[in-house]
Write a protein that binds this DNA or RNA. Structure first.
Lengths: 373, 373
DNA sequence: TTGAATCTGTTAACCAATAGAGTAAACTGT
DNA sequence: ACAGTTTACTCTATTGGTTAACAGATTCAA
């Protein structure tokens, strides 16, 4: 009765074709009733004694309709509980009112609270503007089969929001090339001239460096994310600018993950046992570093300060709670969604917005320990 | 240049109506080209010298078409890069090939790695079966406005998967009542006779209790989730069955969150200072408990063992790493999605599947400390 | 040689809405 | 009173597919 592996096979043809008829079988249907016959605009028109065009105009608040007719039609609509068929509206009209959210491999992405916030912002705004949101994972074969362009060619979506990509994902250029509305959220591809909404990583990093230096930290190690990602490069760049005395041996790639964060912290401390602070390009790597320090018995913040980036929920529940930079992901998703819809509606202006960030002080940072003599 | 609050206003009518014309404006379009004219099945038919019906049949691998015709049409299709318009297919056919994922408030939900896994499983399976997935958040006003039924009435979706709800969400009955395909993932509403795919919480809890008791723990506190949720009740029930000597004062509601997990741990320890183990109904509450223990200076696992439930990624990166029950969320989403699609296709059989769970031993548990004399 | 069956494709209705052209009635001005 | 305009709707083409009904050509049996 218990199993983990779902059956691999499936009897459905992947595209087209009507269903192969109901598999009639007298069994428990869970008290299910047949779906009521859907009423169409024709039926409403007939009952109200007007044409379908009139009903359509009533639905769309067209001012050409008199108050009397409007009320008469509305009454029939309400009584029948009629709702216009969205498929038909899309076919007839110019828009599907569906937005696509494109992510690299989903599983990795959604496990990250970072994406959750972004997507929530997008979905909430989309819903308020009468749009639906579909999730797409841009796996390698998805791109190889040009499925990202299919989204538009087959009229699945009106526009896409791209999250979590890097410079090597050159397929992102395809959208602009084909003239399809696309916006990059919390990322930047300047040379490609792509629409974007980004958090201010520059200012966030600057605040961290100012803070750490005020606490007297000089030997600071940076665990950065992959340099393919614009935001990682910004952090590294500002870090080096603010701490010119620290050479490349104070940098280590943590690949955005806890595991690699652990390894990076180990590498940094091997090279520089006199480090007094570790700054990580995201909270996951910072948590990895804290994990390593705990295993080594190094006390945070007494012996080592740790700063993260992102302010994911967990950062406040670990011990010690993590000092980090808060990024307004929800707001970024919200704004990107709104701007994308404007773009779809025909607004012809490059989108390039920046959202402010701020440092959140918690328990993982403290005054730099005095160097041992 | 930097702002966090996006403009609140929006100039779009929320439903119906054609766009108010392009806002022509000579400006930077980012090297954007006009979208190419979409080719229709009629155009393909014309170029191939056949009827649209024939093209349609070729697309749908209808055996009535000869190999020769098939190849002739295929060649034209390939040359033109033609892809059938999905909107038109949906209007004409019976299915939209879109599934809805219904969640309580999105922001809360997606922040949870738990949902990320489930949704990944759903999306991956859906994609393999040629379906799209849309995200819907069932906020109170969403339900009040009957938007959950609108999903079907307006033909937005063919079926819905419901995640993260509890017994008070009675609107879930509406789907079955209206005869719409719906499946509940990792939850159970037995009296409602609803389709469901659940992880085996009973066995998981049993494994935890066996393990803790083998380690010599007798005074065990349970931080459970809200009793409105079926899975929480299962854990509590099995806990009480396996530890009949522990009365209600060993139970505390942690509301599934870290914050309340902290409070619950505090309450349990206040009442029972001689507690040697805390078992939490999910990892977030367990992490909250660990946080509280750290603040109190109580050593885990030397002085106190902690066990969680879910096996979210973070549980292995905290210190000490959390012993917990692994739930196959990805597989649950995958299986639920497959079953739902079968149901949509007409399979008339109640779905009620259980996926097995297993205990993952890590560092937060150990032999029960001997009671102080 | 005829009648029926089979094969392969076409014709046309249909899905449910929107939009632009068309029209009858009411209104305006002289 | 009559042409011209406005108003308030209706008619119908259109969107891009699917499919039931049909039809011409060929094959086969009686």
């Amino acid at each position: 009765m218990s199993k983990t592996q779902p059956p691999a096979s499936s009897s459905f043809v992947p595209s087209g074709g009507r269903p192969a008829g109901k598999l009639a079988k007298a069994s428990d249907t869970g008290g299910r009733t047949k779906p009521a016959k859907r009423v169409s605009i024709r039926e409403i028109a007939r009952q109200a004694g007007v044409s379908t065009a009139t009903v359509s105009m009533v639905l769309n608040d067209n001012p050409k309709i008199t108050q009397a007719t409007r009320e008469k039609v509305r009454k029939v609509i309400d009584k029948a509980g009629y709702q216009p068929n969205r498929i038909a509206q899309s076919l007839s009209g110019k828009y599907t009112r569906v937005l696509g959210v494109l992510l690299p491999t989903l599983r990795h992405a959604l496990a990250d609270p970072y994406f959750g916030e972004l997507i929530s912002g997008i979905c909430d705004r989309a819903a308020r503007l009468g749009h639906k949101v579909t999730l797409e994972s841009a796996k390698p074969d998805f791109i190889r089969e040009k499925k990202h362009l299919e989204l538009f060619d087959r009229r699945f979506v009106d526009g896409v929001l791209c999250i979590g990509f890097n410079d090597r994902h050159v397929f992102l250029k395809d959208f602009a090339k084909a003239g399809h509305p696309m916006i990059v959220v919390n990322n930047q591809f300047d040379p490609w001239g792509v629409d974007q909404v980004v958090c201010d990583y520059r200012s966030g990093t600057d605040q961290v460096m100012t803070y750490l230096q005020q606490l007297g930290h000089e030997k600071i190690g940076l665990i950065h994310g992959s340099p393919d990602v614009f935001t990682s490069r910004v952090i590294t760049e500002v870090f080096q600018h603010r701490a010119p005395h620290l050479d490349g041996s104070f940098l280590e790639d943590g690949h955005f993950t806890e595991e690699r964060g652990i390894e990076a912290a180990a590498a940094l401390l091997d090279r520089h046992p006199d480090l007094t602070a570790i700054f990580a390009g995201n909270d996951k790597m910072a948590l990895g570093a804290m994990r390593y320090l705990a295993l080594r018995g190094i006390k945070v913040p007494e012996q080592m300060s740790v700063v993260g980036f992102d302010d994911i929920p967990y950062s406040q529940f670990v011990t010690p709670a993590l000092t980090t930079v808060h990024l307004p992901f929800y707001e970024a998703g919200d704004l990107a969604c709104e701007r994308l819809i404007q773009r779809i509606r025909g607004k012809d202006e490059r989108i390039n917005e920046t959202l402010s960030t701020h440092l959140v002080l918690r328990e993982s940072t403290g005054i730099a320990p005095r160097p041992r003599d």
